[in-house]
Design a protein around this nucleic acid. Structure first.
Length: 423
DNA sequence: TCTGGGGTCCTAGGACCC
DNA sequence: TCTGGGGTCCTAGGACCC
């Protein structure tokens, strides 16, 4: 049985989510911004047509926005995460083996669907997702993940494909790969793209047919795998069960820079608290805690420093992790700097089941576990940060909190913000 | 003036060992 | 001018993804 993959990818996902609950946005240029309302992270087709590029800082496209009355939204992650879940659940009704690759993409394993008309089946999936969730998706089909990615790209672009393209047949692959620029191939970023262009490799087809040795020297084993994938030899299997996380990061940029150690301590404590919650959800414990702080990276006098500390016994206890992080923070804090961004990282994560105990450990681990369990329970039930450590601070609008000035409502996850329908 | 956040994988090179 | 060789482990940094 030959492997067959499909990639289902939501069109302009964040914008599409906003449109589901605000149909007035249909047909208009709409963009969604990153945290702190900094960069453009999603664009409607109309916004793309105006020349607004992905990931540009908003201030650079201010004039385009004003001139064309582009509608601007802050990221509403609670809404997008919930919509994503709905889309994925719908897909699972059709294909049991799927890999959720990102918030708006999933790989589907269609190897068991040999006797199906895949084009027809995927159109059925597409239609149902749109009907049940309101989110438009495109689906590309082929024998490897990299080719499915390419098929998906063409499915989105081509008028004839109408959102679904089956690229399993070798006969179409040459022409399809010629139509895709090398920089648009999965796994080719800015640096590799520059290198390949210099070598005269401009399309996906030319990359597929390139000298493996040349590619290997620059792009390593991943480059060779990529060439094989383009040739139709599957190197990346479907990962239905994601492996446990090896690290957890929480970081934020500050709209207004933070100057004081006190201010940073509060921010860092909050990041630890968010990360520790994630860690416990994953049923893990961290063996290492790192802290990093930095000033504005777009300036010449940029200062950045990080420090990590090892725990004798891996832990997921918020208070223990906070005190560990604050010790590192005090060591790297430099006065008279305007800190623009800070963050924490948990490393050396192990499963809470096989924590190596320490003979001299003085901490009551069972008590700590009970305390954390209760803390999580209350916060899930009553609301985030209902119960928290004093180190996190009590200011209503602290400086480290992201600015989100154009936020839509939590239509699907908050009773108080349900959409109203007037009959 | 304003520039996101969270991940993974691979490689080169240093430290250390016998 | 000469200066072992080979292995392992770890880390920092670069590249990529969304």
């Amino acid at each position: 049985m030959l492997p067959v993959f499909a990639l289902a990818d939501c069109n302009n996902f964040y914008v599409s989510c906003e449109r589901v609950f605000n149909p007035k946005l249909e047909g208009k240029p709409v963009i969604v911004l990153s945290n702190n309302d900094g960069c453009v992270v999603a664009r409607s087709e109309e916004a793309k047509a105006l020349g607004i590029k992905m990931a540009v800082p908003v201030f650079e496209v201010d004039s385009i926005i004003k001139k064309n009355k582009v509608l601007v939204y802050s990221s509403n992650y609670a809404l997008y995460a919930d919509m994503s879940k709905r889309v994925m659940n719908t897909i699972k009704e059709f294909v049991p083996k799927i890999e959720i690759y990102s918030i708006d993409e999933a790989f589907l394993d269609l190897s068991d669907f040999e006797n199906y008309n895949l084009d027809k089946y995927c159109r059925e999936i597409k239609k149902t997702v749109e009907k049940w969730t309101g989110i438009p998706v495109s689906i590309g089909i082929s024998s490897t993940k990299a080719l499915a990615k390419i098929a998906n790209r063409l499915a989105k672009k081509s008028k004839k494909a109408k959102g679904v393209l089956d690229l399993t047949a070798k006969t179409y692959q040459n022409r399809a790969l010629e139509a895709v620029e090398v920089s648009d191939v999965w796994g080719v970023g800015r640096s590799y793209s520059e290198f390949l262009t210099k070598k005269g490799i401009l399309t996906a087809r030319e990359l597929r047919d390139a000298d493996t040795n040349v590619i290997r020297r620059k792009m390593g084993v991943e480059g060779v795998r990529l060439i094989n994938e383009l040739k139709g030899v599957s190197c990346y299997p479907l990962e239905a069960n994601p492996p446990p996380k090896t690290g957890i990061t929480v970081s934020r940029s500050f709209k207004t820079p933070i100057k004081t150690l006190k201010g940073l301590s509060e921010a860092v404590s909050n990041f630890i608290s968010i990360g520790a919650e994630k860690l416990r959800k994953e049923k893990g414990a961290a063996g290492e805690v790192s802290v990093f702080i930095m000033t504005n990276r777009f300036r010449d006098d940029y200062y950045s420093k990080s420090k990590s500390c090892l725990l004798t016994v891996p832990s997921s206890d918020t208070s223990e992790l906070i005190s560990c992080a604050l010790k590192s923070l005090r060591a790297i804090f430099k006065k008279n700097q305007l800190y623009k961004r800070a963050g924490i990282m948990f490393g050396k994560i192990v499963s809470e089941k096989n924590i190596q105990q320490d003979f001299f450990d003085k901490k009551d681990r069972d008590l700590s576990k009970k305390l954390m369990k209760t803390l999580d329970k209350i916060n899930i039930k009553v609301g985030t940060s209902s119960v928290k450590y004093a180190a996190l601070g009590v200011t209503k609008k602290p400086g480290w909190k992201a600015a989100r000035e154009r936020l839509s409502k939590k239509y699907t996850t908050d009773w108080g913000e349900l959409p109203e329908v007037k009959m």
